[in-house]
Design a binder for these strands. Structure first.
Lengths: 281, 281
DNA sequence: CCATCTTTGTGCACGCGTTCACAAAGACAT
DNA sequence: ATGTCTTTGTGAACGCGTGCACAAAGATGG
C-alpha cells in the first residue's frame, strides 16, 4: 500500500523468493488453462485451488511481482499470464540441447512441454556413433564431438543431461566450458559446477525412495507399532564399527521385523554404483 | 480435496524432518559408492562432499536417525548403508505399477534405478489396446481395464503416472480407489487426492522454467539490470496485454533470443494448456 | 594412565517461507 | 454520493531448516 509499487521497492528484480519462483510455473499453467476457456478474471481463491496452493500464499507470491489484481474483482487472466511469462523469461526463445539420447532423452525430445513454453530443442547429442544422424522427434542426433560447436552456433545456455551417471560430470564440464550456464540433470549424480552455473536435478530414484519412506511410516502406524524405537539406537554401534576388521556383514545386527516382501535383496550391486538414469543409448 | 496431503501435523515423536528425508537417498547413494570401493569408514566431511551438502547438515541429519558415528573416526559405511536403507523402507520389496507407457513410461520401465533399490515394476499399464501385450523392458503391457485387479493381486501401494495430463486425474482416482497410497506424478497437472495419500510430482516444464528465470536474471545482470519496471502497473490490464512492452525490456540480454521479431509471439499457443508429459502412447 | 588430536553431536541464532488476519481499495447497488 | 460487499495486499507471528561454533567422546601415542 504505502509503497504500492511505485519505484520497484527493491523487492523487485533481486527480490522474488526462490519458493515463489518455483510456483510461478504452476500458476502460469492454471492461468493458461483459464485463458483457453476465455475466462476473463479469477480470484486468488479460485486460482489457488486450481494451482493446488493456499490462496494467501498465492497473493503474497503475486505481490512480489507487483499489484496486478483488482480488489473486489480478482486478477485479469490474460494480463497475469503475460506478466508471469515475462517474469519467468518465457517471452524469449531458449534454445536447449539434450545430451544422452537413450530412452529418457528420447522421451524428453518428444515432450511437448518444451516447445510450448518458449523452449526449443536446438539439438540432440549422443556419444554413440550408431545414433548419429538418426532422427529422434524429427531431429537428427548429432555426435558428442560436435557439442561445443552446437552450443556456440545456437547460443545455447540451457543444457539437459540424460546420460548414464558415469558420463554426466564429463558432459557437464564440457557444456559449461562451452558456455552453458543452466543445467537440468537427470543423471543420478551430484554434479559440481563453477559459480554462476545453475543446476537443477530430477531424480527418479530419490522421489521413489521418499515415497517409500512415507509409505512405510503409514504402514507402521496402521498396524499398532512402528517398533523403530526398539532397534533404533541401542544397536550398539560401538562394536559394530570395528574399523580395521570392517565387519563384513552389517545386516546381522538388527533382525528387525520381517519385511512383507522379505526380499532382502539389499545387496544389489549395480556395476556402476548407481544405475544410469537412462539406458546407455 | 484440496491438493491435500503434504506434511503431517509434525507431532510425530519419531519425526524425521522432511528435508532430511529428502536427503537420505542422496547419502545412501554416496555411501553405496563407497561401499563398492570397500571403504570401511568415512567422515562427515568426506561424505558431505560426496553428497554435495554441508557437513554440519549431514551430521544433524544423521543425528535424527540415532548416533551411528564414532567420534574421532567417522561413520561405518556398511552399517550406515543398512540403517538408512531401513529407515527409508528399502529393506522391503515395493511393487510399483507404471501407468501410461509412452516414451516416458517406457524410459521409466527401463530405468535401472527401480530394481536396484527394492522397487520392482509389478506391471505396466496403458489405455491403448494396441499396446496391450506388447513387451516393454521385458514386461508385457496390460490394459487399463486390468488396473484394479493388478493392484490388488500384487499388493501395490506405489503408482507412477506417466500419462498425458488429461488422463492423469482419472488414473489417479482409480489407483487410489484400488488401494494405492503413494503416487509419483509425471503428468503436468495438479492431482487432488484424499488425505492419507502422498503425491510427489516431477515436472519437466517447471524445472526448465525455473532455470529460464535464473538464466534471464543472470543475463540481465551482466548487461546491467534490464528492469522491466516499464510496463509495471495499472496500465489497463485489458490492453496492456499487448506485449509491445516485451520489446522494451529484455531485448539486449539473451545471447540468442532468436525469437521471432514479432514479439507478439507471447501468445505461443499450446492448444491444451499444457502438453502431456509424454507422448500419448 | 595421561595428553593430545580428531571428529561427532548439538545448542543456538538467524533467515526464509508459510499462514493468519485485517485494513484498504475498489466494484456495485441504491 | 453513500453504503455495502468482495477481494486484494501485507504486517506480523510462527515454525522449519540451515549453518556456526564448540563441548564431549573417543582414538591414538607416549
Amino acid at each position: 500500500m504505502a509503497t504500492g509499487r511505485t519505484h520497484r521497492p527493491a523487492t523487485r528484480s533481486r527480490g522474488i523468493p526462490e519458493a515463489t519462483v518455483a510456483r510461478l510455473p504452476l500458476y502460469l499453467r492454471a492461468l493458461t488453462a483459464l485463458s483457453e476457456r476465455s475466462v476473463p478474471t479469477v480470484s486468488s481463491e479460485e486460482l489457488a485451488a486450481a494451482a493446488g496452493v493456499n490462496s494467501a500464499k498465492l497473493r503474497k507470491d503475486f505481490s512480489y511481482l507487483g499489484s496486478y489484481g483488482t480488489r473486489g474483482v480478482g486478477y485479469d487472466v490474460e494480463y497475469l499470464v503475460y506478466q508471469i511469462s515475462r517474469e519467468l523469461g518465457l517471452t524469449q526463445d531458449w534454445p536447449v540441447v539434450i545430451v544422452g539420447i537413450g530412452n529418457l532423452g528420447a522421451a524428453l525430445a518428444n515432450y511437448g512441454g518444451f516447445a510450448s513454453r518458449g523452449f526449443r530443442v536446438a539439438a540432440l547429442i549422443d556419444a554413440d556413433p550408431a545414433m548419429t544422424g538418426k532422427p529422434v522427434a524429427g531431429i537428427a542426433v548429432q555426435h558428442t564431438d560436435e557439442l561445443e560447436q552446437i552450443i556456440a552456433d545456437n547460443g545455447v545456455s540451457i543444457g539437459v543431461i540424460a546420460t548414464p551417471a558415469g558420463a554426466a560430470q564429463q558432459v557437464c564440464d564440457r557444456l559449461v566450458a562451452a558456455g552453458v550456464t543452466s543445467i537440468l540433470n537427470f543423471a543420478p549424480t551430484v554434479l559440481s559446477v563453477p559459480d554462476g552455473v545453475d543446476v537443477r536435478k530430477v531424480d527418479l530414484s530419490i522421489e521413489l525412495q521418499i515415497l517409500a519412506f512415507h509409505e512405510q511410516r503409514k504402514a507402521g502406524e496402521e498396524t499398532g507399532t512402528p517398533d523403530e524405537a526398539a532397534s533404533a539406537q541401542s544397536a550398539a554401534p560401538a562394536d559394530a564399527i570395528t574399523p580395521g576388521a570392517a565387519a563384513a556383514a552389517p545386516a546381522p545386527l538388527a533382525p528387525h521385523r520381517a519385511a512383507p516382501g522379505a526380499g532382502t535383496d539389499n545387496g544389489r550391486q549395480g556395476p556402476d554404483g548407481d544405475v544410469p538414469a537412462v539406458m546407455p543409448a
